[in-house]
Simulated assay, not measured.
Amino acid sequence: MQGKPPAALGSGAYVAGVAGAAALVAGFAYDAAAPLAVGGLCLGIVAGGLAVTRSQLLGRGLTSRLTGAVLLALGAWVTWTGVQSGAGARYQLTIGSVFVAVVGWAVMVRGDGALASVDGTREPRATLPRTTDGATAGDGRRQQFQRLVDVGVIVAVAYFFYRALAQSDPSSWLFGGLFLVVFLPGTRSQVRLTDSGLVTTHYVFWRVPFDQSQTPWTGLYGYEATDTRLRIAADFGPDRVYDLARIDDVDRVVAVLDDHIPRL
């Protein structure tokens, strides 16, 4: 995803760190603070993904200042609490949560810079079907394997969360949340053809928008259309390959491609 952490992931870390630190400094028990942090992580990823793909909210200076002000207020609260109660194990864990929030904030407000060239107000001229990341639309076996991996991730996360609830184990909440973030199940991509290039939206859990990027027409050197498939060839990275039968309006897609890149 553009070679760096997406802003939505930074948003998740920010909310998780703020929620965890606030819960700890407020005196919540560990087995209550951990699920708050994991819940904040999931909500932050969803909110960040929607902000990135549906608006330019994260790229605005006001948003950066407001979220930064929350961090400053949280830091002052944590510092005052540490001075009053001493730097015990709880305080050290709180400092770690604040650090996660600061890193998440930096990724959130700077990671959205890659989207500056994406014109969110420009309507797509054509849309290609969703594909599983790492596989082409015509690679059925690869997609089936990816679905099995997704099911395995969900089962593992469910086990960790069940153990956390059944045994009041904070570490299980944290391991489940970490496992969820690392393997973000159901990642798919959808490409939209615009006047400026290909705009790719990445989704997790099959439907939740997560990240967005743009490939200009100059980054493509042509396309190939046969009776069964469409291939869009890129200068760098893998080609995009689609089953022709899955494309809703093949003639429109081909017409847009003809306007910008040569047929191979």
Rank of each mutant, 00 (worst) to 15 (best):
18 V>R: 00
19 A>E: 07
19 A>V: 06
20 G>L: 12
21 A>E: 01
22 A>W: 13
22 A>R: 06
22 A>D: 11
23 A>L: 09
23 A>V: 12
24 L>V: 13
25 V>E: 09
25 V>Y: 01
26 A>T: 13
26 A>H: 12
27 G>D: 06
28 F>Y: 15
28 F>W: 15
28 F>V: 07
29 A>M: 09
29 A>C: 07
30 Y>F: 14
32 A>I: 15
33 A>T: 08
34 A>I: 12
35 P>E: 03
35 P>W: 01
35 P>I: 08
35 P>A: 01
36 L>T: 05
37 A>T: 02
37 A>L: 13
37 A>H: 02
39 G>P: 06
40 G>A: 08
43 L>E: 15
44 G>V: 07
44 G>D: 03
44 G>N: 05
44 G>E: 00
45 I>S: 07
45 I>F: 07
47 A>D: 09
48 G>W: 07
48 G>Y: 05
48 G>H: 01
48 G>E: 08
50 L>N: 04
50 L>I: 12
50 L>F: 14
52 V>F: 04
53 T>I: 03
55 S>P: 02
55 S>I: 12
58 L>R: 00
59 G>R: 02
59 G>N: 05
60 R>C: 01
60 R>P: 00
61 G>Y: 08
62 L>N: 08
62 L>W: 15
63 T>S: 12
63 T>Y: 06
64 S>E: 08
65 R>Y: 15
67 T>S: 11
67 T>H: 10
68 G>W: 07
69 A>P: 06
69 A>H: 02
71 L>C: 11
73 A>S: 07
73 A>C: 11
73 A>W: 11
75 G>C: 12
76 A>Q: 09
77 W>C: 05
77 W>E: 06
78 V>N: 02
78 V>K: 01
78 V>Q: 04
78 V>A: 09
78 V>H: 03
80 W>D: 10
80 W>V: 10
80 W>C: 00
81 T>L: 05
82 G>I: 10
83 V>C: 08
84 Q>S: 14
87 A>F: 15
87 A>R: 07
88 G>T: 01
88 G>S: 01
89 A>K: 08
89 A>P: 15
89 A>D: 10
90 R>E: 14
91 Y>D: 07
91 Y>R: 04
93 L>C: 06
93 L>V: 04
94 T>A: 15
95 I>A: 15
95 I>P: 02
95 I>S: 10
95 I>F: 06
96 G>C: 11
97 S>F: 13
97 S>C: 15
98 V>H: 04
99 F>M: 11
99 F>D: 05
100 V>N: 02
101 A>D: 03
102 V>Y: 07
103 V>R: 02
103 V>H: 04
104 G>Y: 07
105 W>K: 01
105 W>N: 00
105 W>G: 01
106 A>C: 03
107 V>Q: 09
111 G>W: 01
112 D>W: 04
112 D>A: 10
113 G>N: 14
113 G>P: 03
113 G>W: 14
